[in-house]
Nucleic acid binder design. Structure first.
Lengths: 187, 187
DNA sequence: CTTTCTTGGAACACATGTGTTCCACTGTCT
DNA sequence: AGACAGTGGAACACATGTGTTCCAAGAAAG
């Protein structure tokens, strides 16, 4: 019963989590057998690490929040103008790709507990956008919450563009930044 | 066995379809019992109109394509500048709301058969965007497919904004049009 | 009122996913 | 070689959704 993170256990856990992300993206109803196959482990092993399905979902939610918090830190929201910080944040989030897609396409999977209350990263982001509206780098006609919505939506669009239109990651990011900059920047 | 669209049958069918749209939006795995309850009919009745689950999905797909085609026609894509036509189309699509959300959040539900091959509405739209790029009203740095992606993404964002941020439909549409116009219009 | 159409509910067999238990196999470390 | 942690697979009971059949009740049309 003791679980002394032996390195192997940590690796197996990660493999299961990653497989869960990639499998449940685009098929929210996938079975644990599907996840197990994608992770290259037996279904029994999944139950060893996550006794119930909801435990796996919860772990995914926590994992995602962690990744988002890290990306937000790396973006240094307080450096430079707000619009520059937004550009950096967009690039960081862009790199999360697969992980974020799930939160977008199947919000009901994540919306469990932690997510309901605004995360620290969210509060930081909203505050930073407000700063941009005051300093004039962000279009003041748009509420901060809308700017945030647009950011998420364009991120989603850029990943769809990669999937559907054989666009390179680099080009997609460029288009995303261009559209975002034009859309929410001050005229 | 004969099905002579008696007006009552048509109404029941519509009730089931509408319930299916509203129920499956946000919970793609909802059971037919859930749909039946939402439609105010018995589960047996659903099977009378749509023998198998896939038949219901197919009917939803066809219904949605029809609504999109109608909206596209109403937008008169060939009148005025391309950017004006895009504004009109955005407003038409905005009104479809609930119906379109499903295609967005659960594409795998719709992606069945008809959808794979580009619909006529899609081709019309792409051609119109190309026209805008040539005449200079649409930012030529953006591929037509990307402009389309941005349109869908901002539509989704505006509906999210209504759901999450207690914004009125009117304000949300205004923000959507503003962001879209700025994002894809020529500088 | 009587016939016809449509419906809702109960009961059923069937398929699929879930969670558990048990046992044998494979590495690794000593 | 022996001890041990980690694993995969089979087997099981259980829950839920699906598709079908049958029948009685209600509404609509003559």
């Amino acid at each position: 019963m003791t679980v002394a993170e032996t390195g192997l256990r940590a690796r197996t856990r990660r493999a299961i989590l990653d497989a869960a992300f990639s499998t449940l993206t685009g098929n929210s109803g996938a079975s644990l057998s599907d996840v197990a196959a994608a992770a290259g482990v037996g279904r029994t092993t999944i139950h060893r690490y996550f006794p119930e399905r909801t435990d796996l979902i919860t772990a995914m939610s926590e994992d995602l929040l962690e990744k988002i918090a890290l990306a937000t830190t790396r973006a240094r929201l307080n450096d430079g103008t707000a619009i520059q910080a937004l550009d950096r944040l967009l690039q960081e989030y862009f790199e999360l790709g697969d992980y974020l897609m799930l939160a977008f396409t199947e919000p009901h999977i994540i919306d469990a507990a932690d997510w309901e209350t605004e995360s620290p990263a969210d509060r930081q982001l909203i505050a930073m956008i407000e700063r941009g509206r005051e300093e004039g780098s962000v279009d003041a006609r748009m509420p901060a919450s809308w700017v945030q919505q647009v950011m998420w939506a364009l991120l989603y669009a850029s990943w769809q563009q990669i999937r559907d239109e054989e666009t390179s990651k680099h080009d997609a990011l460029g288009l995303c930044l261009l559209a975002f900059h034009k859309a929410v920047g001050s005229a």
